[in-house]
Design a protein around this nucleic acid. Sequence first.
DNA 1: CTATGGCACGGATT
DNA 2: AATCCGTGCCATAG
Length: 475
Amino acid sequence: MLQGPSLRQGPTLRPLTTAHLAQTMSLLELPAAELNQKIEAELARNPALELREIKHCPSCKQPLSGTRPCQRCSTPKSLSPEEPIVFVSPREDFFIPGRLSSQDLPEDNFAPHIEDLPTYVLKQVAPDLDYQEAQIAAFILTNLDDDGLLNISISEIAQYHHISLSKVKHILNQIQRSEPLGVGSPNPKEALLIQIDVLSERVPVPSLTKEAISEGMELLSKHQYVELGRLIGTSTRQAKEIANFITENLNPYPAHSAWGDFRQSSPNNVDVYTHPDVIITLLNDSLYSPLVVEIVSPFAGLLQVNNLFRNSLDQAPSDKADQWRSDIDRAELLVKCLQQRTNTIVRLMKRIIRLQRDFILFGDRYLKPVTRASLANELDVHESTISRAVASKTIQLPNGHIIPLSKFFDRSLHIRTILKQIINHETKPLSDNDIAKVLEEKGFNVARRTVAKYRAMEGILPSHLRQIRTSPEIT
DNA sequence: CTATGGCACGGATT
DNA sequence: AATCCGTGCCATAG
């Protein structure tokens, strides 16, 4: 990927060589976590590349990007809520665990405080427990693995704390029933069963789903629907529907924030998001304050070419000279490309965030359909540049959810969300045609066939299989 | 007869 | 150039 000989030139400003372009592109499509690895590897291998001394901001202790003052702490001039505060952060410790919450309440998905999973869950269960129970709950929660599953047995816990098995079970039950649903289950199967249990109180769940999970877990994960249907005594089609419902609405690994984010991902192939490329928070936890956008860009402004190394080039032993020179070239190229990468991402983000402020704050239904092409036009870059910048990147919203950046370019998300609402509020099951009508009244022109597709995407059953939901006023 | 899912086509998007 | 998406048509289930 790096071409040595072709760019053997002076160390001054280099014209845009093809190698340069190629590397800029490849860096652009790398998510932060991988970029981090790549640069670390290069730092270790290439003696011409060095890390500038990292200075930390005196007030917030975060590493500073290059020589600039802390962009996080310096008070912004404009406090217009519309105008996001965007800054680049080279933070090394960008691990922030993703969280999960009920996806059925898009209007309410605002929860500005970021905390780790154990704390988040503990806060939910603590009010219902006495002091000793809370201690045990805390103990349980610290033993969760990255998937949000519990890998020690109930009896171990009971022995350790000298209490009865039933008490542990009681506490664990409380934990499993808090958000993210199923957290603390010993395995994916249990987690799914809990989720079904709780979900069935709010949403229609296809019949036999529980049986499919408890008896046909293996078949499910292998997508063997014919056998599954036979096992639980139903048609293959119904089995497929169940499987579909499960992938769409449930999550075998409670700690992963991918509820409904992935249509194609199968239960055994769940994408994990842990290191977002962009983190959005609210300045004062207020909805009317600007969004604070932190672009996680490893080593941004911290890399430079070692001057000692460069100056000693003419004294290089003749057999090493070539090697040294190519090292310097590589280093320069990397620094430059990294700069370009951050620049592109910053410009892109500024635009996206201003455009999609409502979506970021208030949820899916406020997503404005934007294409990569239109954005490329506005920013005056090639479409493929945007594609690369968006690909395989993730972003953390103020509510703590980590979603793929590509979600910002979902053409139909807002309609699907409204569709979900229509169905949630329906008094009698509406047919796809009816729904298309309602949508049209709201100003969305979609064909009946398309409604069916959206419905399928959201894992909603066809009207004749839907039961009438209990009306909003619950006594 | 109505509602829905499968297939396939064409245009947009990447 | 390859892929995705909305849509129309048709078969089938209810």
